[in-house]
């Protein structure tokens, strides 16, 4: 069962590569616009070998870790405030949804004008990309604490801070984890948007650099890397953690 799924997936990629190779060999597109898979692969290997892609990746991860960390922290604070205070929620909750609906690339010009063409501007965009979705999910997490948990805890003489930290916080963990996973996904997108228009270093910057020098094989290579990292980190880390929590919390069989 498990093996057959793997086989199907490998086969699928194989077919895609074959079609790609076929289109290339048909000569419909000029080779400079449409490199074959082998050339893209070669560009990736070279990029890793000479360290350019590695340092770009490291720079990107640095931006992401700082930005995502701040987004999770700030988002959690805003979310808890809105989740606990009805007053705050009625006042600001609507605007949070509005902010969340703004695509993160929109923040790039603002960040550059405000902060300059540097890494801080990129991190700023990453923070904006992740904060609102984190805040919204934290708010939902607090709101969706089953009232029977609170009632049961209160009948056991639990109240105040202890009620919050020993019951509401752990009870809201599943939605909170979804928030972290989504914050990562949004931050990752924001990171690429920010870096694409930045002055480097970073994966997005390398992408634009390759475009400027008409290196289509590098462009495609980086797109593949971005996609692979995005899905691998989600599958191996965030989705796994979320599922683990959901299972323990009895929300998933």
């Amino acid at each position: 069962m498990k093996l057959s799924i793997l086989l199907k997936r490998v086969l699928f990629i194989g077919v895609l590569l074959a079609i790609w190779q076929g289109v290339y060999m048909s000569g419909y597109f000029p080779a400079i616009q449409f490199p074959p898979p082998t050339k893209v692969f070669q560009a990736m290997v070279e990029g890793f070998a000479d360290g350019k892609l590695v340092s770009a990746l490291l720079a990107s991860f640095k931006h992401l870790l700082i930005g995502l960390g701040l987004a999770i922290g700030i988002g959690t604070l805003i979310g808890v405030l809105l989740g606990k205070s009805r007053q705050a929620d009625e006042t600001a909750g609507m605007y949070l949804i509005a902010m969340q609906s703004i695509p993160s690339i929109v923040w790039v010009p603002l960040a550059i004008m405000l902060i300059g063409l540097n890494e801080t501007a990129v991190i700023f965009v990453v923070v904006l990309g992740g904060t609102f979705v984190m805040a919204l999910n934290t708010r939902t997490a607090i709101h969706s604490v089953p009232p029977e948990f609170i009632k049961a805890a209160r009948t056991m003489g639990t109240k105040g801070m202890r009620l919050f930290f020993k019951v509401e916080v752990p009870a809201s963990l599943p939605y909170f984890m979804s928030g972290i996973r989504l914050a990562w996904a949004f931050s990752w997108r924001a990171l690429m948007a920010g870096e694409l228009l930045s002055n480097g270093p970073g994966l997005g910057y390398s992408l634009r650099y390759a475009m400027d020098f008409a290196q289509m094989e590098v462009v495609i290579g980086i797109i593949i890397i971005v996609g692979v990292i995005g899905s691998v980190v989600d599958q191996l880390f965030f989705s796994k953690m979320e599922k683990k929590v959901m299972r323990r919390w009895g929300l998933l069989k």
């Binding site: 003489g157 109240k159 919390w249 009895g250």
Partner: peptide, 18 residues
């Protein structure tokens, strides 16, 4: 107010899953 001199059991067990 609630107190430990009164214990309550609900229709749903309301155990803490964590």
């Amino acid at each position: 107010e609630p107190g430990t001199d009164r214990g309550m059991v609900f229709q749903q067990p309301a155990l803490f899953p964590w």
